[in-house]
């Protein structure tokens, strides 16, 4: 699975590099695009390596379930 992710990111790295070069974008754009790509890559790998990573759903449920239960009562 990790190999597939690495291959995918290698492909999009090359693709976006060619796109930005062709459009002669500023150095700043290169930095932003590849930093976001780096973060995206890290997140994808982290979801594989750390299986029990907390998900945003847990936070949303923690914040909003009590409010919803107060409004609606317990719906089973």
């Amino acid at each position: 699975m990790i190999m597939i992710i690495i291959l995918f990111f290698l492909f999009i790295f090359g693709y976006e590099w060619a796109y930005l070069k062709k459009k002669s974008r500023k150095r700043r754009t290169f930095w932003i695009v590849f930093c976001i790509m780096g973060m995206s890559f890290s997140y994808c790998i982290a979801t594989i390596v750390f299986k029990n990573m907390p998900s945003p759903n847990t936070l949303i449920q923690f914040l909003f379930t009590p409010i919803q239960q107060k409004i609606l009562g317990k719906v089973d």
Partner: peptide, 9 residues
């Protein structure tokens, strides 16, 4: 240039 990175996320 952001679409594929965010699609992966």
């Amino acid at each position: 240039p952001l679409t594929f990175s965010l699609a992966a996320v």
